[in-house]
Computed example of a mutant assay.
Amino acid sequence: MMSEHSLRFKCFSDPENVLQKWLKAQNIIDVQVHSGEGEEVYFEIKKYKPHGMVQPAVLFVKPDMSVLAKWVQIPTKENFHGAKDRKPFPDIWAEAKAKM
């Protein structure tokens, strides 16, 4: 991904959603995973099988793992399964800065 997009920062991939599961188990943030099972889906989700597609989320934590701010997209039919009505990043960043 880094070379394909000429990125100057490291990227990490987690196709099995290990981080999502750990964050949920630690009660830090419950990042939603869209499986596409049992519902009408407006996009190709089969490529994300068997682990599903992680929905957008933002998490700011301090080194001691205390949460400064967090936001999770909850997929619904009204927001086109997470494709719209996302909280603006500057609003989440403002929440984090206010707690620093």
Rank of each mutant, 00 (worst) to 15 (best):
Q55H: 08
K47P: 04
K49D: 04
F80L: 15
K21M: 04
I45K: 02
L19T: 15
Y42Q: 06
Q32M: 01
E16Y: 03
P50E: 07
G52D: 08
K84A: 12
D14M: 01
P15N: 11
I28Y: 00
F12R: 08
V72D: 04
S35K: 10
N79M: 13
S13C: 15
V61R: 01
P15I: 11
R86S: 05
Q26M: 09
L59V: 08
F60P: 01
F60A: 14
A83K: 07
K77N: 09
S35W: 05
L19M: 14
K10S: 06
H81F: 04
G38D: 02
Y48N: 00
I74A: 15
F43V: 03
Y42V: 04
V31R: 01
M65L: 08
L59Q: 05
V58L: 05
E40M: 14
E37M: 07
K21R: 14
M53W: 13
K70S: 13
P56L: 05
E37W: 07
G36E: 00
V33R: 01
M53H: 11
C11I: 12
A83G: 14
D85H: 06
N17H: 13
N17W: 06
V31C: 03
K62S: 14
I29M: 07
A57L: 14
I29T: 02
F12V: 12
Y48Q: 05
Q26Y: 01
D30Y: 12
H34W: 12
N27V: 12
V41A: 04
G36F: 01
E16C: 07
Q26G: 03
P88E: 06
Q20S: 08
P88C: 08
Y42C: 04
H51F: 10
V33T: 04
E44H: 09
V72A: 09
K21E: 12
A25P: 13
Q55G: 02
C11D: 08
N17K: 08
R86E: 06
N79V: 12
N79H: 14
H81A: 07
I28E: 00
D14R: 08
E78N: 13
V61E: 00
D14Y: 05
L59R: 00
A25E: 13
N17S: 09
A83F: 14
Q32H: 02
S13A: 15
A57R: 11
K21A: 15
L68Q: 03
V54N: 02
Q32T: 03
D64S: 03
V61G: 04
F60Y: 13
T76D: 02
P50R: 02
A25Q: 08
A25C: 06
V54D: 10
E39P: 00
P50N: 05
G36D: 00
K87G: 15
A25I: 02
F43L: 07
W71E: 10
K24A: 09
F60T: 04
A83Q: 12
Q73L: 14
S13M: 13
Q73T: 09
E39T: 09
K77S: 11
E37Q: 15
Q32R: 00
G52Q: 07
P15H: 01
V67L: 05
R86D: 00
L19Y: 01
